[in-house]
Design a protein around this nucleic acid. Sequence first.
DNA 1: ACGTATGCGGATGGTTTCATTCCGCTTATG
DNA 2: CATAAGCGGAATGAAACCATCCGCATACGT
Lengths: 212, 212
Amino acid sequence: MTADPETRLRADARRNRDQILAAARTIFAAQGAEVPMEEIARAAGVGVGTLYRRFPDRDALIRAVAVDNFDRVLRDAKAARDQEASDWEALIRLLHQSMELQLSIQLAMVSPRALAILKSDPAIKALRDELLLVMDAFVRGAQAEGRLRTDVATGDVAILFATLLRQMPGKGEEVARMATRRCIGIMIDGLRAVGTNEPLPGRALTGADLDP
Amino acid sequence: MTADPETRLRADARRNRDQILAAARTIFAAQGAEVPMEEIARAAGVGVGTLYRRFPDRDALIRAVAVDNFDRVLRDAKAARDQEASDWEALIRLLHQSMELQLSIQLAMVSPRALAILKSDPAIKALRDELLLVMDAFVRGAQAEGRLRTDVATGDVAILFATLLRQMPGKGEEVARMATRRCIGIMIDGLRAVGTNEPLPGRALTGADLDP
DNA sequence: ACGTATGCGGATGGTTTCATTCCGCTTATG
DNA sequence: CATAAGCGGAATGAAACCATCCGCATACGT
């Protein structure tokens, strides 16, 4: 209903807005949603004023990043489903396209503040739920294929992934990036269904366990 | 040289000091070394005044926690080496005795502030180096046994472990604890040497990669 | 090419969050 | 019981941070 508020932006303003969102995506993914606004502005190459003119406060920014990102991930997920031969491969591909998914998880289930915001906005909450559903389908599918170990559930994968990817502070860009990619590899090998797996303690964690 | 400054403490003071250290261990391990001092005091069941009387500032507290903790871990590691049948099993046991080791890693390589402090104190730096050496021995040993995948090094294990264990904020104690234990299990399975492993990208990360 | 509405950066003010200190009261100890 | 040792937490000051405002710059319609 709100017309399209973005079309009427001046070209440079539009560009800045996109840069801000991109910067926020990167930073939120790496450090969580509570970083100083100024840091985001700097990363985007704009002044704080510009940031605040476009997004009246942090919550607005988080909301915008969330829609933007959930959209991307859902698109990626559907592409993966369509193009990959199996649910397992689709899941792996999704995990390797990590930054976007990492951010989704970060927002959807790690940062308490982000979570509160998302839940208070029905449209975003719907996206979040859809994402959980899609991941759930991959997980169950891959298990049915006999490739993903059966003693895990979507919550396990999400938690594992989200925790792994919080970037370690104060390491070289170089090492950090490599460490992340290697950790994902190890994690994936740990998720495979193979005879040598030890049974995991407790019960499988579902999407519902991520909520409160 | 400093006599023994602890023997001359009044009984209750001594008890409080221990509680503070215990609380700091738990909290540092879960949230890193930058939590408000007051939170530590509260967790220890004492006033901030008491905390500051015993440890003049945060650095002193971090130092104290570090010695205390490196000592424990080194003891545990030696016990593991003596009592377990193989290096692989010793490594696993160490990883499962997680809280202590997690804190060591957190202090020794994750928190930049802690790292700076540790390095400026020769005695603690020595402990840290010794710990890295011991882990290194386990890693190489387990690889020689053919049980640990050969495309990882100590740095990988440390990073994997440290990142995994940063507790997720705002989840029930119950779920958080279970998630941690399950993640460790998955990670260990990912570290096993089995035919299904995909080769990891980049190069193996060593202890040296953790420094800067 | 020009006038103007739109947008920009970053200094600034007010607020919150922390670290650290201080002091009147409590308690272990001999 | 006297007293030195210890305790809690309010008070203080500094730092970090959010959000606003305004003089200057730039895109865009004509």
